[in-house]
Every structure is written in C-alpha cells, then in structure tokens.
Simulated scan of single mutants.
Amino acid sequence: MPELPEVETSRRGIAPFMEGHRVRQLIVRDRRLRWPIPDGLETTLRGLTVESLTRRAKYLLFRTRHGTLLLHLGMSGSLRIIEPDEPAGKHDHVDLLMSNGKALRFRDPRRFGSLLWSEGERVHPLLAKLGPEPLGDEFTGDYLWQRARGRRIAIKPFIMNAAIVVGVGNIYASEALFEAGIHPFRQAQKVSKARMQNLATAIKEVLARALTAGGTTLRDFSGGDGQPGYFKQQLAVYDRAGRPCRRCKQPLRSTVLGQRATYYCTHCQK
C-alpha cells in the first residue's frame, strides 16, 4: 500500500503538470472505487483551474476556487502523467485531461482508492479528525507521550492510528521502532517520555529518508513519473525475517500485530 512518502513522491511528481492548469475533461471508465465516484463530477470539474496540489495524510488535494478534489491511492493505486491519446489499460479507471495538453491517469487494480469532491471551503469528513503530520512541528515526543497516557494498546498500532499521527504506515512504523529501539508490543503508556522523543525523531528521520529515496517499492508503487521508489534497499527490519539484524547480527523476527505483519529484533528492541 502506498504510504506517506509514496503519496508525497507522487504529489511532487505530478504537481508541475497540475498547478495553474485548467481541467479540460474528466474521463471516468469505472466509478466503482472504495466509494463510488460522484455522479456529475465530470461536469463539476470541467473548466476549473487547479490552484494548488497539496497532501493531507495519504490524500492528495486538488484545490480549485470552487472546491477540492480528494484522491486516495488505496492499496494499489498509482498516478502517471501521460499523453491524452495513450490507450487505457484494464485498471486505468480515471483520466484528468489538462489544458497544458497532458493527462493524469489513475490506475487502481484493486479499486480501494477513491476520488471524491468537497464543495467550497468545507473540510471533508474524512479529513476532519486526522492527527498531525509527522514531519510537522506539532508532532513531538511530548505530544506522543501525552496521547499515550492510559493507553494499553501496543506502541506499533498506536503510532499507526491516523487520529494520533497521520501517514505512519506499516513499513515505516516497523522501521522507526527499530531505530528507536522500542519493541512493537510494548504498551504505549509504558514508553517513557525520553523514549517517545527518540521515537518521534526516528519517525521523522525514517520518513525523510524514504522521501529522499522516492518511497518504497514492494509490489505496486511507482512515483508520478512511473519510476519505482528505492527505500526498500535501506530497510532495516521490514520484510527481512530470518535475516541478520544490521546492528547485532541476530536473526530478525516476524509476527502479526493488529492484523499487520510486524518485523523486529528481540535483542535491539525492548
């Protein structure tokens, strides 16, 4: 599943072809995404100028004067800038034709992505209760420690909760916990304030490195230019069960926590 670095990489790749350009046509080949693409969206978008393309959590926000188009890549979605006459494949569900002669193509084999519209300045309900951005100033160790008070939930699903902090998906949660030396099963309320500071720093550093590398390619992800991300080559624990820890050389473990594959080192993470 594309996580925050992958979504941000896609945003940076397609933004120059979207911002300041007018929507000529929206072509919808299949409305059956996670939520049906709204009827009449083709008419709503026609002629509007994309004033900015931003990101909130894993949502891309195409902002216009009259409202915002929200796009989520889901589990297998990807975006590419193409020529408008490029033939569409089986899973190419949406094209956004722009006034600069280019088109944005949304491909989603599993159809867990979404394309929704928010009228005017209204904040869409899907965005209303999200936590802070992990790379922003609001996200600190003190903030994490305060939110963890009285929480018996394991620390890994705690930091993957979008109401606590957005965009820390499974890969980056595993990597950040390893960097901070925290066992993924440790209760959130039992992580000290000092270790929470280490964890907040690790989350920021892991995500920043992934952004520099263009994201992580495991199955479906490619950036806005169609190129894969390369952070997979830097992964310390994720998808490396049975292989030696890069620090202590002990075999890494894997298990399931919160219905997600979890990778860790029993020696380095306590």
Rank of each mutant, 00 (worst) to 15 (best):
L235P: 02
P16T: 01
D220S: 08
S222T: 14
L199I: 07
K129F: 11
D92P: 00
I37M: 08
H183M: 06
G101F: 10
R246M: 06
C248A: 14
G181H: 11
G13E: 04
R56I: 02
L45D: 01
S254T: 00
E133P: 07
R107F: 02
R151I: 15
R24H: 09
L144P: 03
L4K: 06
L69M: 05
P228N: 08
I159S: 07
E83I: 01
R240F: 06
R56C: 05
R56L: 02
Y59S: 09
D39K: 08
R186F: 12
L73F: 00
M18H: 02
G47M: 00
R56A: 06
R243N: 04
G224M: 08
A154W: 11
R11P: 09
R56E: 04
V237R: 13
G20F: 14
D137K: 08
C248D: 13
N100V: 03
Q233M: 03
Q269W: 07
F112T: 01
A241G: 04
A213W: 09
H183C: 07
E205A: 15
I82A: 01
Y172D: 10
D239C: 04
L199H: 09
F221G: 10
L61H: 05
I153A: 13
E42L: 03
C248R: 14
R34M: 09
A173C: 10
M75P: 09
A180E: 03
P228L: 13
L33F: 04
V123W: 05
D95Y: 03
E133Y: 08
G181N: 12
P5E: 11
P109H: 08
R29W: 07
A213R: 15
A210K: 13
T43W: 02
L97W: 01
D92C: 00
M18L: 14
R11C: 10
E133D: 15
E51F: 00
S222M: 10
T64F: 00
Y263I: 01
P251K: 05
V191F: 12
R253C: 11
V28Q: 05
H66T: 10
F62S: 01
V256E: 15
A173G: 11
S52G: 06
G74Y: 01
A241P: 01
E8H: 03
F178E: 07
P251C: 05
G181V: 10
R151N: 13
G229T: 09
L45G: 02
H267D: 11
R55W: 06
I37A: 08
P134M: 11
L135G: 12
G74N: 00
R122Q: 15
R24A: 04
L97M: 01
E86Y: 02
Q250N: 08
A103K: 07
S118F: 10
T266K: 15
S52P: 02
P157E: 11
L116G: 09
Y264Q: 04
L130S: 13
F139T: 12
R122L: 14
T54E: 06
E179H: 12
R46V: 01
